[in-house]
Amino acid sequence: MINFSANLSMLFTELPLLDRFDAAKNAGFSAAEIQFPYSESIDALRAKLDETGLQLVLFNVDADDLLQGGEGLAAVPEKRERFKAALTQTVDYIEALQPKAVNVLPGRCMNPRRLDDYLQTFGENLSLAADTFAPFGVSAIFEAINTIDMPGFIIHSGAQMLDWLERLNHPNLLLQVDIYHLSMMNEDPEAFIRLHPETIGHIQFADTPGRGQPGTGNIDFNRLFDTIRNSGYSGWTGAEYRPVGPTLDSLDWLEQFQTKKL
C-alpha cells in the first residue's frame, strides 16, 4: 500500500497556502507536507488541519538563504547558533502540528577547501536535531539533492546518505529519498528503495527531467510505485513536483495508483 501526501509548497500554488489544504483534501489526499510552514501561524495551520482532517506529515527546518542561492543553515560553521534557534522554532511547530518527520536540509558549500568543516558541522547539527525531535516521536531525516539544480550541495548521492546514517548511528535518524534528485544524479532510486527500505523515513517524487508530474518525463512510475509498494516501506510518499498546467489536471496518477480513497 502506498500512502500519498501532497506537497503544498509545490502543488495547488494557484491558491494561497492555507486554501491548498482544502484543495488537497478535495482532490483525494489524506495528508500534506510543506517545505517551510513558518510564514503561517501555528494556530492557522492547526485550524486548517482540524477543519480538513488532513495530517501534516512533513516539513523542513528553516534553511535560511538556501532557496535563494545561498549555502543554507545546517552545515555553515558560522551559523551554528542560528541553527539552534531554528530548532527551537521547529519544536514549536512540531508540538502543535505533530508531523511524522522533519527534514534537515544539508545545504551547500561554495568553498571546496572548507568542505570538511561544513560536513562536520552538518553531522553535529543533524545529531542535535535527532536528539531534539526524539521526545516528540518525530524522526529527523535528511536528503541528497542533485548538484545540477543546486551546485555545491554537500550531500548529493545515495552512498553519501548511507555513509552519514552509519557514521552518526542515531536511533532517531532516517533518510528522505527523493526520486527526482537521485534520478538527476543518474542513480537508480528503485534499487535504493529495494535494498534499504529500513533506512527510509520519507519518499518524494517528481518526473525527470523538468520536475513535472508523472508522465512528463522518463521515469516509469508503474514500476517505481510497484517497487515502493513491495519494498516493505510503510511511510508517506510525497508528490513534490511542479505541475505542468493546473494542479488538478496533473493528478491522473493519483486516481490510478492511490490505494485508499477518501
Rank of each mutant, 00 (worst) to 15 (best):
N218R: 12
A206D: 01
F36I: 12
L175Q: 08
S231R: 07
I219E: 04
D163S: 10
A140F: 06
P197L: 00
I193M: 07
W236I: 00
V76K: 13
M1D: 09
A44Q: 13
F21W: 00
S234M: 08
W236R: 00
H170L: 06
E81D: 14
N60C: 13
L119W: 08
L49E: 09
Q55I: 08
F36Q: 07
S157D: 01
R108E: 01
E166Q: 13
D117G: 11
D220G: 02
A140Q: 04
A85F: 05
G210D: 05
S231N: 09
F59D: 04
D163Q: 14
G70V: 00
E95M: 13
D117C: 04
L248D: 13
L49C: 08
Q160D: 07
R80V: 13
V91S: 01
Y241M: 03
A239Y: 06
F83M: 00
A239C: 11
L248A: 13
R46A: 15
L45G: 07
I42V: 15
T208A: 09
I42R: 15
M161K: 03
I148L: 12
V177D: 00
M150S: 08
S5A: 15
G123H: 12
T52H: 04
K261H: 15
F122C: 00
S9T: 09
G201K: 01
Y241E: 06
E78C: 07
G72C: 09
I148V: 13
L66K: 04
G69Y: 12
N125L: 00
L174Y: 12
L182I: 07
R194H: 00
L87V: 15
N169H: 15
H202N: 09
Q55L: 12
E255D: 14
P171R: 11
M1L: 11
N26W: 01
D131T: 10
D92L: 12
A47F: 11
A6L: 00
L56G: 01
V138T: 15
R82K: 15
A27F: 10
G235R: 01
L11F: 08
I145R: 10
A23R: 06
S39L: 10
I94F: 11
S234E: 14
E143T: 03
H170F: 10
R194M: 05
V138L: 08
S30R: 14
D64Y: 15
M10S: 11
Q176I: 03
S157Y: 01
A140Y: 08
A144T: 02
A159P: 06
R229E: 13
S41Q: 00
L97R: 08
D252I: 12
I219T: 14
P16E: 11
K48N: 11
P151I: 11
R82W: 08
S9D: 02
D131Y: 06
Q98N: 13
G53L: 02
P106T: 07
H170I: 02
S183T: 14
S9W: 02
Y241V: 02
W164I: 14
D220H: 06
D226Y: 11
A206Y: 05
I179R: 04
F257E: 02
N172V: 06
M150I: 07
H202W: 01
D62L: 10
Q120F: 07
P214R: 10
R46V: 11
G137Y: 03
L128A: 11
P37I: 08
V102K: 02
P243D: 03
P209K: 13
A129P: 05
I179D: 05
A23G: 06
A31E: 06
F12R: 04
W236V: 02
A44G: 04
F205L: 05
L97T: 05
E255V: 09
W253C: 06
L11Y: 10
E71G: 02
P151F: 14
